[in-house]
Amino acid sequence: MGQYQSPCLVLCMNTLITVLFLIFAALILTSAIMTVTVKNIVHAALWLISSFFGVGALYLLMEAEFLGVAQVLIYVGAVSILILFAIMLTRDLEGSQNRQLTPRWWIALIVPAALFGLLIVPTVMTHAWQLPPPPPAGQPPAISGAQQIGTAFMREYFLPFQVAAILLTVAMIGAIVIAFEERERRRRVLTLVEQVRLRQRQQQRQQPAPRPEPAATAVQTSEATGGET
């Protein structure tokens, strides 16, 4: 900016940041409330995604670029997709109109409300935060960015980093093992080669083999070679 730095710029930018923060806060909270209250579970998941976006934007506002992008990549790109997949794999259409809340949901409302009103707000508002002094004017504040995070992961947080890697591997294997269907319960789909081989053997034996339905065979064959059409 250099010589164009005007007093309005700082003031306007401060106002702008405040307004942006309020917008993001409203987005996060509205989406979160919709997430926990809407009937349709798919809508809840979509509202959750919008809330994740708000949180990512808030990270960007707080100059944690790496975290903001990682939030979008992991939560929006992976976790929410996973949730949507799980919803669609476990969907029962009739059940979606049922009550989504437990019968005694008002007890569940009182506990968080009390926690928020009696504990969090008074503590946060009355605690004297020891904020560091603002950096001298014209000098950018020392903010640790992606490079410092990478160095930290390779030096002082090396062990936690490895543990996180093992955790992810274990979680991946565990998820596959838990969700994997039993082999017998899956219908085996023959490849074209297997079908041909099977038919050859049956013809060799000269047995009145249980021939598959011609129509079904045609469909299977065209599926196996479907790419060429």
Binding site: F21, A25, I28, L29, A32, I33, T35, V36, I41, A44, A45, L48, S51, L58, M62, I83, A86, I87, T90, N98, R99, Q100, L101, T102, W105, I107, A108, L109, V111, P112, A113, L115, F116, I120, V121, V124, M125
Partner: peptide
């Protein structure tokens, strides 16, 4: 302000986890 926002979000999430009947909803 930021801490209050985070606290509110936490409480909303807690409410969701306690009150939903659907397991996916609890996870949300």
């Amino acid at each position: 302000w930021v801490l209050t926002l985070a606290g509110a979000l936490f409480c909303v999430g807690l409410f969701g986890a306690l009150s939903r009947r659907n397991t996916v909803g609890i996870l949300l």
